[in-house]
Amino acid sequence: METGVNSAHAAPLWRELGESGELRRLYTGDVDKRFGLDTAALSRLLTTLDERHPLAVVLSVCVQVATALPIVMNSSSRAAAGVARAALDGRSTVALAVTDAELPGSDLTALATTAKIGPDSVTVTGAKDWIVNATVADHAVVLARHRPGPHPTSFVLVLVPMRSRGVAVTAQRSAMYLPAAVGRIRFDDVVVDRDHLLVPPGRGMVEFSRRMATERLAGAFWSTALLRRQLALVRRQLGANGVWRHSAVRIRFAEALMHFRQLAALCDRLCRARERAESTDAEAALVKAAAGLAVDRVLGICADLAGRDGFLDEGIQQVRAQAAMFGTAGGATHTMLGLVASGADRLLEDALWAS
Rank of each mutant, 00 (worst) to 15 (best):
R276M: 03
A84W: 02
Y27S: 00
R216Y: 06
A218P: 09
I316G: 04
A144K: 13
T328Q: 15
L42S: 09
L37G: 00
T113R: 02
V319D: 07
K116F: 05
L178D: 13
V191R: 15
T123N: 01
N241Q: 03
I117D: 05
P152H: 02
A171P: 15
R163I: 03
G126D: 06
L13N: 04
F311S: 14
V167I: 06
A97V: 06
R194I: 08
P104M: 00
G327N: 04
G21A: 04
T39A: 09
V65C: 11
A254C: 05
M1W: 03
T125A: 03
G338M: 03
G118T: 01
W14H: 12
L339G: 07
R274K: 12
R85Y: 01
F155A: 05
A284H: 05
G204Q: 05
H9L: 08
I131D: 06
G166I: 07
R78H: 09
G330V: 02
A303R: 07
A175E: 13
Q237F: 01
E349S: 15
L49D: 08
P161E: 06
E215G: 10
A137R: 04
L263S: 01
E255A: 07
V243I: 09
S7I: 12
Y177A: 09
S355E: 14
A306D: 14
A168E: 15
T123V: 13
L69I: 00
V65Y: 04
R261I: 05
A40T: 13
V156A: 13
D89A: 08
L103Y: 04
A277H: 10
D193I: 13
R52Y: 05
V295H: 03
L108M: 13
Y27N: 04
G149S: 12
G343V: 08
R261C: 09
P119F: 02
A254Q: 02
F253S: 11
R250T: 08
L231K: 10
A321I: 05
K116N: 11
V98Q: 03
T114A: 08
H139M: 13
V57C: 04
P104C: 01
G36A: 06
R186E: 13
